[in-house]
Nucleic acid binder design. Structure first.
Lengths: 234, 234
DNA sequence: CGAAACATTGACAACTTTCAATTGCCGTGG
DNA sequence: CCACGGCAATTGAAAGTTGTCAATGTTTCG
């Protein structure tokens, strides 16, 4: 039952820069979203090197974050030593916003990463006055809840289904068409899907053999037959 | 991979009664909770016989519900025919409140059940004026999110750990001390934990052999050694 | 270039599901 | 009241899936 768990300890310090990032810089979805606007108006940008911790599990959840560039993962170490990855956040995604004073997960940079940080109290204060913002916060929460519920549904499926789902999800979110450049290592994927690295690796190989995907390099995957992947998921 | 799935089809009609239920009637937690007060002020009570559907997956989520008596489960049929149970709701618990217009899960009465129903729009209207209520709604959402996240952590554990967790959770929520009167059948438990009935049954038998629990009848379980169960969870 | 980290593959073990049979429980009707 | 039927629960045996351990191959980066 004990999978190996990859626990990275990095003490790299983040670089804090005070200049403002124009909202348009992020994924183009900035306009018309009051939440994104608010974050960029009031926030400061910070840079984290690969594998650096952005915040720790149990720390006070005083800030909300939005990815500007790079990729972030949230994770939690289970009592048996394994690690569960809560999710991956790509440019434009918001993370770290909690409904209680402690972070449930920790957050780490998967690659060199830039994020915008804003104090939660500030966000809440504005939300008290701006209905659109508070509505947007509700919507964000709803999406987050749905995302976690989908993970529950995912975790009762077979290894093949989980991996197929992961590939389709990444392909859609990263918008690289059929080519996926994975920013994370196999261990991250395994801990996200509740599998071992070996099972993830074997499943990918098997999907490659059945011509559903192509493994150019271990980090670059091409979807050759999306519907085959979707059927697995079905 | 295909477990058997228990799909119950019942066409029993609910009984709608218009009289108000005094808030104190519910679990004693009514006072000081503006959300519970609001529900009972504005809501109507409905009765559902065992296994009746309260709302269906995909239906419009116009109402929020609170259990008065009995037990409710939410569930979803997966494309492969299996069923995933989202959660069990005991007297006092609120369910069916969504952030979008469709229900993600369906809800059924596990036993004969009485619930209070309130229109979501009414709740939201009041929340717009009453800060305490809107704060309570946020808190409820936060708890729900945490609950689902815990289920994610649960589903990556062994069958024994899942069953132990389930027993401890039920014992705590039903407040029967060490005696648990299970309102649901084994299939419900299995679909909640992402296991098969056989595995649940075997695990319970094994826990009974190791003297951690006692199976008086299949519906009545006595916790004999809570710390043994907790260690499994650890 | 070479070491270290990452990824893949194989063989085997452990856990869970599947299929099948049996037992126990409970309500209904004779 | 008891017997019967039906459903729920348990148990057994076998198969399938995933995890574990170990070896080998590959990539990355100083």
């Amino acid at each position: 039952m004990l999978h190996q768990a990859a626990v990275h300890i990095t003490s790299s310090r983040p670089v804090i820069s005070t200049h403002r990032v124009p909202p348009e810089a992020v994924n183009g979805l900035a306009k018309q979203n009051p939440l994104v606007e608010a974050i960029h108006m009031m926030g400061a940008t910070m840079s984290f090197p690969s594998e650096a911790e952005i915040f720790g599990e149990g720390e006070e959840a005083d800030y909300a974050y939005q990815v500007v560039s790079g990729v972030v993962r949230t994770s939690k170490i289970l009592s048996d030593g394994r690690r569960q990855v809560g999710g991956f956040y790509l440019p434009g995604d918001i993370f770290g916003l909690e409904f209680r004073d402690e972070h449930t997960f920790s957050a780490e940079a998967v690659t060199d990463t830039k994020v915008v940080v804003v104090k939660r109290s500030m966000l809440m204060a504005v939300a008290g006055r701006d209905t659109r913002l508070s509505r947007e916060l509700m919507a964000l929460t709803g999406r987050e809840l749905r995302r976690v519920q989908n993970r529950v549904l995912l975790l009762v499926k077979s290894a093949e289904q989980r991996v197929a789902y992961f590939l389709l999800e990444m392909a859609e979110r990263a918008r690289g068409g059929n080519v996926i450049e994975l920013p994370m290592v196999r261990q991250d994927i395994a801990d996200y899907l509740g599998l071992t690295v070996e099972t993830v690796s074997r499943t990918l190989s098997s999907l490659a053999h059945s011509a559903a995907i192509e493994l150019s390099t271990s980090r670059r995957i091409v979807l050759r037959n999306r519907s085959a992947l979707r059927i697995l998921n079905a």
